[in-house]
């Protein structure tokens, strides 16, 4: 019988690897066949950015999914998902630098004053830190600090949604949709990690459950 380790190694991980590659392959194929539409660079810029955000949200969905389904093995895919979010983010940056600003440093620097650009850079910078400390060796070396550092992923996601929200012309629905998904993912953590445990404590003690007590005030 296959062990969980073999299933993860030869089943889960290759599957996730290929699935995450599909959006890139699709864009590549559309580009190659000249089917990216009238504004192919604009299309590539948007798609790489949106897929970075999507995969980041999928990464953040792993923990709630594990808890809700009991499928502990899901966590084995989390690092790869996070690294893919990072990779699409870097592609997004490369398309922006190369095909939108043509590596013109004055243009790139001039754009920094724009709030949506700044938010994007900050998100990418944090993602670089997270990717650089994603190896097993770094996890061991940083110990407890690793977990603290990797809470930056919440900031990355918030900045990603903000970046999107600040740049749209009028159609706020897509960025608000991603924002709602993020709010749900973060809200679940607040509930499961902060509020629900205290609720349990209060109930066991037979004390009244009030908002202030749930928030941890006495």
């Amino acid at each position: 019988m296959a062990t969980r380790q073999t299933l993860v190694r030869y089943g889960l991980k290759p599957t996730v690897f290929v699935l995450c590659l599909l959006p890139l392959l699709r864009q590549g194929w559309l580009a190659y066949t000249g089917n990216l539409g009238a504004n192919p660079i604009g299309e590539l810029t948007n798609e790489t950015g949106v897929w970075s955000l999507r995969l980041l949200l999928v990464t953040l969905a792993i923990t709630p999914l594990r808890r809700l389904t009991g499928w502990g093995w899901l966590v084995s895919a989390r690092r790869m998902l996070g690294l893919y979010a990072f990779a699409y983010g870097m592609l997004h940056l490369a398309v922006y630098w190369g095909l939108n600003q043509y590596f013109d440093l004055s243009l790139i620097a001039g754009d920094l004053k724009r709030p949506y650009i700044f938010a994007g850079y900050l998100a990418l910078l944090f993602m670089v830190l997270l990717a650089a400390t994603s190896t097993d060796a770094m996890v061991r070396r940083l110990g407890r600090r690793w977990q603290k550092l990797h809470r930056l992923v919440y900031a990355v996601a918030i900045l990603g949604v903000l970046h999107y929200l600040l740049l749209v012309k009028i159609d706020f629905l897509p960025p608000l949709g991603y924002g709602a998904a993020l709010a749900a993912l973060l809200g679940w953590r607040l509930w499961a990690w902060q509020i629900a445990p205290r609720w349990g404590v209060l109930l066991r003690r037979g004390e009244p459950v009030t908002p202030t007590r749930l928030a941890g005030h006495r």
């Binding site: 009238a38 504004n39 660079i41 604009g42 095909l99 043509y102 754009d111 724009r114 709030p115 012309k169």
Partner: peptide, 17 residues
Amino acid sequence: TVPWSQRYERRIGNLFK
């Protein structure tokens, strides 16, 4: 007045702005 720059434009069909 919009979030992006108006200094350059992409002529549809061209690679460079």
